[in-house]
Amino acid sequence: MKALILAGGKSSRMGQDKATLKIGGVTQLDRILELVRPLTVDVYLSVAHLSEGPSTFDAERSKLNFQFLPDLEPGPGPLGGLQAAFQHDPNSNWLVIACDLPLLKKEDLQALVDHHDGEKDATCFLNPLDDQPEPLCALYSPTAAAKLWAVLEKNQRCARRFLASLKRTDLQPTDSRSLLNLNRPEHLVELEQLHENGPVEKEVTVEYFAKLSQEAGTDSEVLHSSAATLAGLWEELRLKHHFSLDLPHVKPAVDNEFANWTDFLSSDQTIAFMPPFAGG
């Protein structure tokens, strides 16, 4: 098995800033490398262009044992990384991991390896958010290569749709937040706090209003959470209740006063989550 870490491409993928983003002093790329290293020595870093590699990543990382794998053509998205991987070695299993999954655990990657069935095209996780297979943390068999070429020829670039079309083994991640994307500045504060203090359980009352109470099926609930900030709590509840709205369109309040997403959560608070206002 070889591993492909998706770190290149600024817009269609997570962008180099996420690979070099530090939580607790460790970059996301270094963290993923640490998770992957026990599983394989053949680690490749997917980049848009070879020129991007050495200039993008600092000297410390260059002594690590990995190679840069440039896309075969410009702007192909994550599937282009997989295409370059299978071009490089069509007979290997490829473990593909995006490096913006800060809560991914080594047990998750181990599960992909342990449950991999060579008769199938891929082993992957169902994302708890929508129960759909997650393409950017998955193990692909060589049989996936021919199917990949076929979709790329038709100029289909959606990695989710591609994975959905494959013969798969679907797994549940070890934790509902394992596949949390690092895509908002608010999450960074949450992750820094979790890193510094570890998970601390709190008991809070959560109130839902309007559309959110309809989707949650309740006006309020008392629950235990190890989230550090309101943004972390929202992420947990969004997964639990499959809310249709995301953080930018929801307003939080703590103890009957408007609050900020990065405010810390503490026990005995009453947290309100409110959809966009529609008075008048």
């Binding site: 309007a210 559309k211 307003k251 409110m274 206002f277 008075g279 008048g280």
Partner: peptide
């Protein structure tokens, strides 16, 4: 008043 109330007061309609 009306612009601020519509934008800032937590009221919803079904």
């Amino acid at each position: 008043l009306i612009d601020s109330i519509k934008a800032r007061v937590p009221i919803w309609k079904q």
